[in-house]
Design a protein around this nucleic acid. Sequence first.
DNA 1: GTTCTAGAAC
DNA 2: GTTCTAGAAC
Length: 222
Amino acid sequence: MQVDNTKGREEGRHQAGNFKKWPRWAEALRDVAFSPEKYKDKVLKVTNEAVVYPDLYPKGKKHVLVISRMNGLNSLEDAGKEHLQHLQNIHNLGQEWVAKFLNEDQSMIFRLGYHSVPSLRQLHMHVISQDFDSPFLKNAKHWKSFASSFFLDSKNVLAELESNGKINPCSEEGRMLESPLRCHRCKTLHKDIAHLKYHICKCKIPFAPDLIPYLYASNLSA
DNA sequence: GTTCTAGAAC
DNA sequence: GTTCTAGAAC
């Protein structure tokens, strides 16, 4: 008889003072992480540590999640130095998928990262193409969650975990809603999401130098 | 996270 | 009149 407690579903293993409650709808990714066999027709890859899974409502032409399978790791708030290798492995899995996508289309550009205040439980990293060409991108919050400081690049998350031993819980959610709608390439302002979407499908201005270190592509100058 | 929809904004 | 945003959902 085999007993495996490491990936159990039991609740209540919260760290002291960390009693964030998650509504029922926020548990979807957790089920994928711990019962990937139930999602066999959709799951792209399963390892001991993570599941690669297509985002159900992709906000770009290519958008997948690398979902942690570690019990108790609900979000970046729960991450410590002991998770550094785990998060590095998640990052590497993301890069693996970037390579696959680039093999199909060399013109794509990707970013790997986390939402600073995630809506869904279980740590998950986004791998998202920077075209943001998707009918599921519908409102300002969608845009800002990927194109403002609300989006934390995986590379920076790893560096901060290395140096601080934790990810500082910055209150980005409120600030995000205040910030105006700006093109992620040319930084021009747009009055609403409809106008922004009309603009970004045409904008070919190269990305600003400060973003280059966080972009994954075949050729950034192209 | 999404859907629905009232009423604000244009 | 139509487009768009934002708050409720047990």
